[in-house]
């Protein structure tokens, strides 16, 4: 059994909303697991069931070899960082960190030692006497982390802790969280709707949609090998291009071009997915793109345009290529890196 084990966990809220469907998942000790998915897909619900803040409608959750379904949150030895930090407004930073330790009946000197160590690790030693209202967003974030770390819990739970920060700070804190987790080595689950955050932080990530884990794997596995239309569209930025097509006798015909000898026995209506970065300009072109707009990011250019059938399409090329608005580009798919999905079920078929 793994460190954290979810078995057929289901959550139905009292108002009838089914937020999580029979989800099973294992997290190894020391692993950084990320739940990613669009807003309302049930990520928080799943996390809160691990924390004990929501009842489990059905299924079992085991933590460190112990069934915790009925264990009170205060007894689970988990720590959580909330989106709005939920710092204790009337306590100074020191007491925010110390409160959980006091409740566990730890003696004063040990508490002081632990709080000071955690504060040092997070570089908040200078603010220990301040109230949370006198801290900046980034500092509050650190205090929230400190409150989790100081208790040395079995598992860290993060519910979108970076979404209240500005873009620059978010990237900085993202890095720090990753470093910190590696240093402290605590098993962590991190919830986010931001796929970049998910990709950069995760050892493994679970892509969740409508209360179901659509795919579970390392970031690269999921990027390289999305198992469904949803995952393919959700992971990767800019988003994968999707074209309508039809397969007959191992030949895929889409609007304006054909791909022969595809690696699939599927027949019927499909969606063809091509990542913007898996295209290149070439003579024997497959796709003709009329350029509307070029975004220059420096290292890359994002070229947006339309295909013959007026479908929007994106192509990512190295930043040293100059592409004019209005140009006609002929593009080919590199190394046959395309994805085919059954149009009706969304399942990958190649």
């Amino acid at each position: 059994m793994s460190f954290l084990d979810l078995k057929n966990v289901t959550k139905i809220y009292p108002n009838g909303t089914k937020a999580v469907h029979e989800t099973s998942l294992s997290v190894e000790e020391g692993e950084f697991m990320v739940f990613v998915g669009p807003s309302g897909c049930g990520k928080s619900t799943l996390l809160r069931m691990v924390a004990g803040l929501e009842d489990i409608t059905e299924g079992d959750i085991n933590l460190d070899g112990k069934l915790i379904n009925e264990v009170d949150p205060s007894e689970r030895d988990v720590a959580m960082v909330f989106q709005n930090y939920a710092l204790y407004p009337h306590m100074n930073v020191y007491n925010n960190l110390a409160y959980g330790l006091k409740n566990r009946g730890i003696d004063k000197e040990t508490i002081e030692q632990k709080v000071n160590d955690a504060a040092k690790l997070l570089q908040i030693s200078d603010y220990l006497q301040r109230k949370p209202s006198m801290l900046s967003g980034g500092q509050r974030q650190r205090v929230a982390m400190g409150r989790a770390i100081v208790r040395n819990p079995k598992i860290f739970l993060f519910d979108e802790p970076l979404s209240n920060l500005d873009a620059k700070l978010r990237i900085q804190m993202r890095l720090e969280i990753k470093k910190l987790q590696q240093k402290v080595g605590v098993t962590s689950i991190f919830v986010t709707h931001d796929q970049v955050e998910a990709m950069t932080l995760a050892d493994r990530l679970a892509v969740i949609n409508n209360g179901i884990i659509e795919q579970l794997g390392t970031p690269i596995e999921i990027y390289d090998n999305p198992k469904s239309l949803f995952v393919a569209g959700f992971i990767g930025s800019p988003q994968m291009n999707f074209l309508d097509g039809n397969i007959k006798n191992k030949t895929l015909s889409a609007e304006g071009f054909e791909i022969k000898d595809i690696d699939s026995d599927f027949e019927g209506e499909v969606k063809l997915g091509i990542r913007p970065e898996h295209l290149s300009q070439s003579e024997n072109s497959l796709i003709n793109l009329k350029v509307d707009l070029v975004e220059q990011l420096g290292s890359d250019n994002l070229v947006y345009g339309q295909l013959k059938d007026k479908k929007d399409f994106c192509y990512r090329c190295p930043g040293n290529l100059t592409i004019e608005k209005g140009a006609d580009l002929s593009l080919n798919i590199e190394n046959n890196k395309y994805y085919i999905f059954d149009k009706s079920t969304g399942k990958r078929v190649n």
Binding site: D72, R76, R147
Partner: peptide, 18 residues
């Protein structure tokens, strides 16, 4: 008072009285 405060306190081991 935001719910997170209670939840956070619970995870920190607070009981109803504390």
């Amino acid at each position: 008072i935001p719910d997170e405060l209670l939840e956070s306190a619970k995870l920190d081991g607070a009981n109803a009285w504390s």
